[in-house]
Computed example of a mutant assay.
Amino acid sequence: MSDVTPDEPTGRLPSSAVPGGRTDGPPLAVLLHRLTSCPADLLDPHVHATAAVADLAVALDGTVLDPAWLRHLDERLAAGTPEGRDTAALALLASWLVADPALRGVPGAQDAAARAGGTGGWLLRVVDALPRALAGLRTGPAWLAQDGPREELARAFLAVAGLRPAGEDDDLAADAWAAVSTAHQRVLTAQMAQEQERARELAARLAEQRAKEAAAQYASY
């Protein structure tokens, strides 16, 4: 199972679930195109996410999930609660991306899969890590509804998969992530609101002090 921590600073790229440094993946446009072609029924609440992941692992390289992995996924991807449905949706979207031959054919992706012990192992690491990186931000279908969420999802996927978009170095990928990260933007918005409130309080105190000084000066005449 993944060792990704869910409480990392919001402006930092999600941790890679793959040992070793990040390598060049496909262009970001490849993942965005794949997400726009995602069939709506993939995110149907009745889809059994664990079974779908298990079937894909077998199809990719013959990986058969052991009972521990099956129990782990069943616990995390149970669709009985809104949180479970959203986690299952992210796991299914991660599976949809891994299933893309255009992604798996990239040398960097092949290297990441090898470092994860094979394509099936890579799938499991990504499926486990991506919902942690994006927990609580959107419902499943909302990730596909607009350009911004699709880019956030694609960049988070690449990050946890041990990849970065083709044509970007680590610094550029990190800057681009900070620009699209919903969690980070929410933190920045809250910080700006706090700063504005402190500025209003300071202005009020200064105005009060000036009024007192003016009153004292008037009284001394």
Rank of each mutant, 00 (worst) to 15 (best):
A129H: 06
D7V: 08
Q217N: 08
R186L: 14
P165A: 13
A94R: 02
L172Q: 14
D3C: 00
G11V: 02
R125G: 15
P141V: 12
T50Y: 02
A145K: 08
A183W: 02
P27Y: 08
E201M: 09
A214Y: 01
W177V: 09
D55E: 15
A203P: 00
A135Q: 11
R186H: 11
E83P: 00
P141W: 10
V106N: 09
A91Y: 01
R76V: 01
Y218G: 06
A145Q: 12
G117E: 06
V30W: 03
L130I: 11
S15A: 15
L60D: 04
L134G: 07
P165R: 03
G136D: 12
G62M: 01
L158G: 08
A190G: 12
W96Y: 13
T182G: 10
L73A: 13
M1G: 12
A102V: 05
S37V: 14
A116S: 15
T119S: 11
L153H: 08
A190S: 13
P82A: 13
T50M: 11
D74G: 15
A89H: 00
A116L: 07
W69Q: 15
E75N: 10
R200A: 14
P107M: 11
A203T: 05
L73V: 00
M1H: 07
T10I: 00
A135G: 02
V53S: 06
P107E: 10
L93T: 06
G105P: 00
D147Q: 12
R150C: 05
P67L: 10
Q209P: 00
L13H: 03
H184Y: 13
R210H: 14
G25L: 02
R104W: 01
T81Q: 06
Q191V: 14
R71Y: 01
G62R: 02
V18W: 09
G84C: 10
V64Q: 10
D147L: 11
G117Y: 05
P131L: 09
A133Q: 01
R198G: 00
T63M: 13
P149K: 05
L42D: 06
A203E: 14
L137K: 02
L202Y: 09
R150E: 12
A214M: 06
Q196H: 09
L77N: 01
V58H: 13
L60S: 09
V180G: 08
D128A: 14
L60H: 04
A174K: 00
W177L: 07
A207H: 07
R138Y: 13
A59V: 07
A99L: 00
G21D: 14
G21T: 09
V64D: 05
R34I: 07
A94H: 01
Q196C: 02
G20Q: 08
Q146K: 09
G25A: 08
P101Q: 11
A159I: 01
A79T: 15
R210T: 07
L28T: 08
D3I: 00
R200H: 14
A54D: 10
A176F: 00
A89M: 01
L123N: 07
V47T: 15
W96V: 02
D128H: 04
L56G: 05
D7Q: 11
L77V: 03
A89V: 03
L60W: 05
A99C: 11
V126D: 11
R164T: 08
A176G: 13
W122M: 04
G25C: 03
R132D: 10
A88V: 10
A199F: 03
L130D: 09
G117V: 06
T182F: 11
